[in-house]
Amino acid sequence: MSETTGARPWSPSPLALERAAFRRAQRRRSGLVALVSTALVVTAVVLVVVGAPGWERARTAFFDPENAWAALPAILEGLWLNLRVWVIAGTVGTLLGLALAVLRTSRIPALFPVRALAIGYIDLFRGVPVLLVLYLVGFALPALRLEWLPTSSAFLGALAIVLTYTAYLAEVFRAGIESVHPSQVAAARSLGLSRAQSMRTVVLPQAVRNVTAPLANNLISLQKDSGLISVLGAVDAIRAAQIATTGTYNFTPYVVAGLLFFLVSFPLTRAVDAYQRRRGWGRSLATVTGGGDIR
């Protein structure tokens, strides 16, 4: 078999140096153009907004620092509820969604009724607005007077969100599973792996990696939708902001809440991007599909 020979010592030829210099100059020029165009756009936006006739009133109604500071503690406390709902609903929804997606592919006859139910469930909850599910769960469930069911609005709100997002996430995972080429399953089964073993070791790892982006998008939108539990009366960040605005006609608390939601989700989106880039495998896929460094 061939062995690698030691690389010969190399120093860049004049041609290579000249090309490298050109690429550097081009990068500098690109950077400059980007900078100038950014400055132009920002200036234009600022001029339009600040020059608007209602700017002064809008500024005090939406960006009042004093008001923001006063509302902050209550909103932060509300946000803490959002975060808990997000983490719990996200975890439960992800696990259930994954389980449902895998279940749909199983061929165990005894599981047929469960499979049929799962499909019906997913179809139903993908087609119904979250807000409606929230109202139904929040107001209809307690009406059943089930002893064992907690009736706090935060719990019911989280339940409604889990119900909806489990269906979304199940579809994400299903798309992931279907994106794995059948030849991968053939290779796994050919080695003697069982259906379940190839699902676990060959299909799922690739499926999850193939859908990291839509998965993260769903989890981020779950974080935002956790604000919807406020319609049931749970005092989350949005409800806290609403309370703070009553009587003042100053909407700054909403802006504060929005900013806080953004501050939570933004690092997540960036973390997912970075994570995907860091994986050798993800990167090489990117170069296959997206062209990577192709000039």
Partner: peptide, 26 residues
């Protein structure tokens, strides 16, 4: 199937596993 070994026309290696893990999986 475990008594046979198959090499596919397109190799079908598992892209998410190192070569070593590809070989040790079975």
């Amino acid at each position: 199937r475990a008594r046979m070994g198959m090499v596919f026309q397109a190799y079908n290696l598992f892209p998410h596993m190192r070569v070593l893990d590809n070989v040790t999986l079975a």
